[in-house]
Amino acid sequence: MKSNEKNTLTEEKVNSLLKRKERLAKSKKITGLTFVWIMLLIMYLPIMYLILFSFTESKIIGQWNGFSIASYIRLFSTKYPDSIKIWTAAWNTLWIALVSSLLSTLLGTCGAIGMHFLSKKIKAAFNLATQIPIVNAEIVMALSLVILFAFLGLRTSIFSLIIGHMVLTLPFVVINVQPKLEQMDPSLYEAAMDLGATRAGALFKVMIPDIVPGILSGFMISMTLSLDDYVITSFTKPSTGEDFHTISTYVNGLLSKATLPIQLRSFTAIIFGLIVVLMIAYSIFNIRKGKKA
């Protein structure tokens, strides 16, 4: 009887202690998450601000002149030179990113495969050279490329721009493919060869499928870097003919002007919407894949 009482007493004590601990953890969790959400809010504030004012027709952001979708209509009308400039810059940004990323992915994947079979010393030299553009300041790479083309007596052109973006992105393809090659089971490749596969067959059926995730993430990082690039683009973009602009260089050129074209707000809003949709689609795709596996 007595021992039983004692037991319930200690049980109560333990329970209250546990509850206190739980409450403490809960309050900690709430403070932590509040902090994170406040930071997120601040991070998104400038973009949300642009998007909010894409729905009004005032020259200056921060001045609400009533709801209007004029900035969207203007963006899609060819009557306004600013709209044409934005779309041309957007198209340039996109195709430069696609072409340079594809070339980087191809060259980088081949390079990583080749490097995998090199002797240790030469491989170390390759790895060191691969690290240079990653560690180096972008502006030094940009200047060095301009000097290279000046040295060769060439003007900067689309070619130098693509090369510039490849210098920027290529190392990231290589460092993304390399770990996948190292994880690969070398005996599989040899087994394929022993079982009569041709070299090309072994390469495409055994090796490439194993490293596809690395190739894809290398390509994605290349696209991200290339789309966002300003410094290398402004140095290596074509210097002759009519003004060549990507979004970065076009918008930077607007900085000195008093007012920004209102289409820029609707353009940003559309791009942001697109990114959100892509992100959600990607997450859903990942979740489904996770469920299947």
């Binding site: 060259l107 980088g108 081949c110 390079g111 990583a112 495969i113 080749g114 490097m115 995998h116 079979f117 090199l118 390759f126 050279a129 691969t130 240079i132 553009p133 180096n136 030094v140 790479m141 200047l143 060095s144 490329l145 000097i147 290279l148 040295f151 090369i163 490849m166 210098v167 290529l170 290589v174 490749y189 040899e190 060869m193 070299r199």
Partner: peptide, 28 residues
């Protein structure tokens, strides 16, 4: 015999590294 020929895949990348990354820095 299996490994040797794969090395040549690194040649284009090596050429790119020398031509557009190492040489331009020396030019600076």
């Amino acid at each position: 015999h299996v490994k040797e020929p794969r090395k040549i895949f690194s040649i284009p990348y090596g050429v790119f590294l020398v031509l557009f990354i190492i040489f331009p820095i020396l030019l600076i």
